[in-house]
Amino acid sequence: MKRYLFHRLLALLPVLLVVSVVVFCLIHLAPGDPALVILGNDASPQDIAALRQQMGLDRPLLVQFVSWFGEILTGDLGHSLFLNTSVMSLFLQHLTPTLALALYAQFIALLLGLAGGVVSAWQHGSMTDRVIRMLATFGMSVPGFLLGLFLIFFFAVQLRWFPVVGYRSTNDDFWLNVWYLTLPAIALGLRIAALIARMTRAVMLDVMQEPFINTARAKGVPERLVLLRHTLQNSLIPILTICGESFASLVTGTIVIESVFGIPGVGSLIVDSIERRDVTVIQGVVLLITVCYVLINLAVDLLSYLADPRLSVDGGEK
């Protein structure tokens, strides 16, 4: 276990290197000059050149990249060119809304996805099964931002049950925070719920064909216990895997939903940084998001091992 953890954490270095190269090239080769954005269009060429030299933007790209990546290895992600704050501080300030939204969306996805998948597998071939599969297909097809706009129009503008946009901290009022996050969490979580429902149904139908299920039924075990204790319990590993991967995608993919609902999370930080060409923040935040994604998937592997010790941590069976 310790050796596996060490190798997985060591594998972060090439991932960080590849991501950093791609992000660095995309940002620095894109049109737009941060010095010009800071000083404005009325600035003289001499002032712009002086600021570029002060920020180190006049150096060759390779020298800039080596210097920046060396600082990353020491844990220094740099400072914002506009806000005079460290990138790590900005990331942590905006992480709480993103995590709150992702956790709420994951709760909705698990609640609807597991319930829908179990019922669909139980009622296999019935009208209920067909309706659930149709809803799952619809949920996976509709883009999150479009669903978010529909939810805003219907539930916020027409019915006035929820606020249109905005965010309230959990430090102010927990239930007020839940109220503000309900619509964006639904818009973000329904697609994941559809994915979990389809995965749960498929895995449970496969398990239902196993001999031990027929043996349990032949012994007179009630169908409810066969479904929940034998079928669902033996389907947990792939379901747990898809849930973990979906949570990683929720944490790293809230940019559009946060922009639609005006939530000051990591996604909004990236959008604002792109608009003002704050290259240091963009580079650092994208790297941190990549690290979060890898660590969440590592946690899923370990949870799968704890759920079924017969599995080795590298994904095979002992």
Rank of each mutant, 00 (worst) to 15 (best):
A35D: 00
S304Q: 15
L181H: 06
I192K: 01
N177M: 09
I132Y: 02
C243M: 15
A187M: 07
S246D: 05
G253S: 08
A197N: 03
L111R: 02
E258M: 14
L205P: 01
L73I: 11
V63T: 03
A193M: 09
V300P: 05
T231W: 00
P143L: 11
L13R: 12
F145S: 06
A30N: 04
I196L: 13
M199V: 14
D33P: 01
A115L: 14
L190V: 13
P31H: 05
V207H: 06
V119I: 15
Q54L: 14
V63L: 13
L111A: 15
P163C: 09
L146D: 00
K2V: 10
L228V: 09
T254S: 15
V300E: 07
G220V: 12
A218H: 06
A248Q: 05
L232C: 05
I38W: 00
L92D: 00
F69V: 10
L51I: 12
L26E: 00
T85G: 01
G144C: 04
M88G: 01
A102W: 05
I38F: 10
E71H: 11
C25V: 15
R8C: 12
M208V: 03
S44K: 12
F154K: 07
M208Q: 14
S268T: 15
T128A: 13
L149G: 01
V22M: 12
P211M: 10
Y180W: 09
T252C: 15
K219P: 00
R217K: 13
L151I: 06
L302W: 01
L81N: 00
H230V: 02
S120C: 07
K2T: 10
N84F: 14
R229T: 03
W161I: 03
T241Q: 12
L101G: 04
L17Q: 13
L135E: 04
P45L: 15
L306C: 09
V203T: 15
H28Q: 08
V157Y: 13
S20E: 11
D33I: 15
Q283N: 07
N171K: 12
R52F: 09
A197S: 14
F145P: 00
D58F: 11
M1S: 12
R130Y: 08
L103H: 05
G75I: 11
I263K: 11
T182F: 14
L92G: 00
D172Y: 13
L10Q: 10
T74Y: 02
